[in-house]
């Protein structure tokens, strides 16, 4: 068992090693880690049996430095491994994904435009046609989700199927269907907003902020 002052001395000395981690061997790093663990164990034991509040605070402070040293060692190893991981990570098919997103998103929006055109040809005002078309698109998204098709579109189209309002419908319908087996109140009722909830929350928030700003500057 070491004594408190010895641990403090070792703590100070250890900083020198920690500053030159790159230059020391793996076995030395391991023994550093071992020493840290032993000191930490003794400190927490000391802290537990120290009734005096001020002295406890002092021990806690030393313990915090030990944790800091442990984290430095941990980070060092993790960064080294992170580099290897980065090297072997598979390339993301950015071009293919982007083309798929462009195509799927474009097609969904074109369908929306066709619906708007049909409404305006039948004498509905442009603005109302736009709202009605969005609602029809929500219906299409919901139906395709129910039929189990929309997740396949999403797997291919990525953001292209997520960003249009059909994706919003998908985000509401999919948890609703999924959690039906947990009942209609805690299942469907509670889970229906797992993904759309944040959208409605932040949407409302931003609209109120914009409203208030316009109210003030008016």
């Amino acid at each position: 068992m070491a004594d408190f002052n010895e641990i403090k001395n070792r703590l100070e000395k250890r900083w020198q090693n920690l500053n030159v981690l790159k230059d020391i061997s793996d076995t030395e790093i391991q023994s550093l880690n071992q020493g840290l663990q032993e000191d930490y164990q003794y400190l927490i034991f000391l802290e537990a049996k120290t009734p005096d509040k001020n002295r406890r605070k002092m021990i806690k402070k030393v313990r915090a430095s030990l944790i800091e040293q442990q984290n430095i060692l941990k980070k060092y190893n993790q960064i080294r491994y992170g580099r290897i991981v980065q090297k072997s990570a598979p390339p993301i098919p950015v071009l293919k994904n982007s083309l798929a997103a462009f195509f799927v998103g474009g097609v969904i929006c074109s369908i929306g435009q066709i619906i708007i055109n049909i409404f305006t040809l039948n004498g509905i005002s442009n603005k109302e046609a736009s709202v009605a078309a969005a609602t029809v698109m929500v219906f299409i998204g919901a139906l395709l989700t129910g039929l189990g098709i929309y997740d396949e579109i999403g797997r291919f189209g990525g953001a292209g199927s997520m960003v249009p309002i059909t994706g919003f419908a998908n985000s509401i319908v999919s948890p609703a269907i999924e959690f039906k087996r947990e009942g209609y109140v805690y299942g469907v009722g509670a889970k229906v907003f797992t993904i759309a909830g944040p959208v409605i929350l932040y949407g409302s928030l931003i609209s109120v902020i914009i409203g208030l700003i316009f109210y003030i500057i008016k």
């Binding site: 990570a89 598979p90 390339p91 993301i92 098919p93 994904n97 989700t145 189990g148 929309y150 997740d151 396949e152 579109i153 999403g154 797997r155 291919f156 189209g157 990525g158 953001a159 199927s161 997520m162 994706g167 998908n170 985000s171 319908v173 999919s174 948890p175 269907i177 999924e178 959690f179 797992t194 993904i195």
Partner: peptide, 17 residues
């Protein structure tokens, strides 16, 4: 999938990893 990630019918793209 539904416990750890997303509802199965949600249209998410799976990453390469």
């Amino acid at each position: 999938e539904r416990q750890l990630r997303f509802p199965t019918e949600l249209g998410v793209q799976r990453t390469m990893t």
